[in-house]
Design a protein around this nucleic acid. Structure first.
Length: 264
DNA sequence: TCATTAACCGTCG
DNA sequence: CGACGGTTAATGA
């Protein structure tokens, strides 16, 4: 898979024109099957907006008025608790939609979205989604496919969260990140993404110290290697041991992308 | 600010 | 009881 490109500067983002929007939309799974001409028509109904790194794009609970598609940069989707703890729902990379469900039903966002880099979003107002659906019926099927996939991932996440212990959850998180951001590196996979220990903890639903303990153990066992917040999975199979992927009974589409690669 | 370690403590199987 | 994991504190990079 390709690694998300560097975030453009704000200047570039400001210059995000129709051609750039069209190019983004052309890669978006929701518009799969449309001709170039048709994608360009959709692009006419969309606009772009830039967000600097570390700013919120929208917050949990706010009404959703548009479909948000990530054109460049990375976004963290998460729930936050009053005590400062966060539960990361997912990291989004180009060209994914954020919060497709709320975009469709118009109800509140279910999570907060924060830009991790300078980010460009392509925005399609909800009012025009109906037009697009009617004009291009293929998109309805695409939306269903996408929703099903998201539902699957959430389902797996909740199962993992409730059935696995801390090590299993952390291992699961690492494998998922490797799937999303992993670049081949020697025998293993390098998660091409700076992650603090706190990030790993927030994804896995454990405390910082537990995340450190687990990662240190894995490092001692030679399963992973870390340097400057970059985690490299040296021994992918070794990670599946503590993660207990072997008797994982979920059809884990998280780790088996589009093709049929067999289950893990 | 981030990472690490260690001591301590409560829960649960 | 003992493993697990959260809490707290101290320390170093």
């Amino acid at each position: 898979m390709t690694i998300p490109g560097r975030a453009p500067s704000l200047g570039e983002a400001a210059a995000y024109d129709k051609a750039a929007i069209t190019q983004t939309l052309a890669q978006c799974a929701l518009l799969k099957g449309l001709s170039d001409q048709e994608v360009a028509e959709v692009a006419d109904l969309a606009h772009a907006r830039a967000f600097p790194a570390q700013t919120d794009i929208f917050a949990e609970g706010e009404p959703c008025r548009a479909l948000w598609i990530l054109a460049s940069g990375r976004v963290r989707l998460y729930h936050s608790a009053a005590d400062g703890r966060q539960q990361v729902v997912s990291f989004r990379s180009p060209v994914m939609s954020l919060e497709l469900g709320p975009a469709l039903d118009g109800r509140a966002f279910t999570a907060t979205a924060t830009a991790l880099d300078d980010v460009v979003m392509v925005i399609i107002p909800r009012a025009t989604l109906l037009t697009i659906e009617q004009r291009f019926p293929t998109t309805v099927r695409n939306v269903i496919d996408q929703l099903c996939q998201e539902l699957r991932q959430r389902d797996i996440s909740t199962a993992v969260a409730s059935l696995k212990d801390a090590r299993g959850r952390i291992g699961c998180a690492l494998l998922q990140l490797a799937f999303q951001y992993g670049a081949p590196s020697g025998n293993g996979l390098r998660i091409a993404y700076r992650l603090t220990r706190q990030d790993v903890a927030d994804i896995s639903g454990v405390t910082l110290e537990t995340a450190i303990r687990a990662l240190s153990d894995m490092q001692r066992q030679g399963i992973i290697r870390t340097q400057a917040q970059i985690i490299e999975i040296v021994d992918v199979d070794g990670l599946r041991g503590p993660t207990q992927c072997d008797d994982c009974q979920f059809d884990c589409s998280v780790f088996v992308p589009s093709r049929r690669n067999g289950t893990h």
